[in-house]
């Protein structure tokens, strides 16, 4: 039996708003195995991004248990969480969240800065991955000088640069045309093939069909969790 990478039990997340406590996640339970390819679906506002932020160790749940690699995230210090975000988890944000003042190479190599790699090595790795993303001509451009689709690819490149085992992507193809989407999904497929755990939020069935498992959120709860028989044959 495969190892559990992620175990979520009885997870709640409330937001304190001026209008009172606003529950977003209500008793979420989910276990994901090493090497799984999961698509998270559901209508807008159902709590998908909130859930992903907790998975990515960016936010803490109000209540409930989150075990990552068998360790309770609750008990980790902020330094240990930072290290997880840097090395173990690659996060692709729903917005691109790139540094506007920095070049693409600088943006992509930023996680390596915090991993304390040498500058020459950082630049080499960053350029290499940008080339694979088809951005070989834009090394020294700023994010506002390239298209939205290109920015999304930079964001993906940055998430992958430290070779994380777990990749979390919040609507990574939301801003891409279908051809580019296919190219991006190919990257995720390949990453999954070499054993990475991948969790993708998407609205599109077409994209979700890349995943072997589909989880549907509605109103802060998981309403469907099924094996995907239609998972596209990998080339």
């Amino acid at each position: 039996m495969a190892k559990h990478v992620i175990e979520i039990a009885g997870l709640y997340k409330d937001y304190d708003t001026p209008a009172g406590v606003f529950p977003v996640l209500k008793d979420v339970n989910l276990t994901i195995d090493d090497g799984e390819y999961v698509a998270i679906m559901g209508p807008s506002g159902s709590g998908k991004s909130t859930f992903m932020n907790i998975l990515g160790c960016l936010d803490r749940p109000t209540k409930g248990e989150y075990m990552l690699d068998g360790h309770s995230v609750k008990s980790l210090s902020s330094n240990e969480l930072a290290k997880l975000r840097n090395k173990t988890i690659g996060f692709v944000f729903q917005g691109f969240n790139l540094l506007a003042r920095s070049t693409l190479v600088e943006n992509v190599s930023l996680p390596l800065v915090y991993a304390e790699d040498q500058k020459e090595l950082r630049t080499k790795i960053a350029k290499n991955i940008l080339e694979r993303m088809g951005l070989g001509n834009y090394f020294d451009s700023k994010p506002n000088q390239i298209s939205g689709g290109q920015q999304q690819r930079v964001a993906i490149a940055r998430a992958l640069v430290n070779q994380p085992r777990i990749i979390l992507a919040d609507e990574p193809t939301g801003n891409l045309d279908s051809k580019t989407s296919d190219e991006i999904m190919k990257i995720f497929d390949e990453l999954n093939q070499i054993g990475n755990t991948i969790i993708i939020v998407t609205h599109e069935n077409d994209i979700a069909d890349h995943a072997g498992r589909q989880v549907r959120f509605l109103d802060g709860k998981i309403v469907e969790d099924r094996h995907n028989k239609k998972q596209k044959e990998k080339a």
């Binding site: 930072a82 840097n86 540094l99 930023l110 940055r158």
Partner: peptide, 16 residues
């Protein structure tokens, strides 16, 4: 603030 958030999200420690 946003820049700080981004840096933290990709692994900057408080110390950094």
């Amino acid at each position: 603030t946003r820049e700080i958030g981004i840096r933290m999200a990709i692994g900057a420690r408080e110390k950094d």
